[in-house]
């Protein structure tokens, strides 16, 4: 799978989710923040994007803690996303 295909698949999985809130947040993150991430953070984001919305949402709103430190960094970035 080439880079375009990989990103397009990720884009689909970020913007066709169960909840509108997550479509908006992950879609915005993918366009603006994801290209600036290092490889470890990018991997952590892909793992987060694979989670179901009701697993991911508590991490973003802070009601659950991330066990993995790199994942926690990415969640902090997600929390700072402002949807335009």
């Amino acid at each position: 799978m080439d880079e375009r295909e990989r990103i397009n698949r990720l884009r689909w999985r970020c913007t066709r989710r169960a909840m509108l809130e997550m479509d908006l947040l992950l879609g915005e993150f993918l366009e603006r923040i994801f290209p600036t991430l290092g490889p470890a953070q990018a991997e952590a984001f892909i793992v987060l994007a694979d989670m179901e919305d009701l697993e991911l949402w508590p991490l973003i709103n802070g009601s659950r803690e991330c066990a993995d430190p790199v994942q926690a960094e990415v969640v902090a970035l997600l929390r700072d996303v402002r949807v335009k």
Binding site: R13, R16, R17, A18, M19, L20, E52, D53, L54
Partner: peptide, 12 residues
């Protein structure tokens, strides 16, 4: 399905 079943909008 366009998405994995448990990602359907019924979740909302």
């Amino acid at each position: 399905s366009k998405v994995f079943p448990t990602r359907s909008h019924t979740v909302a």
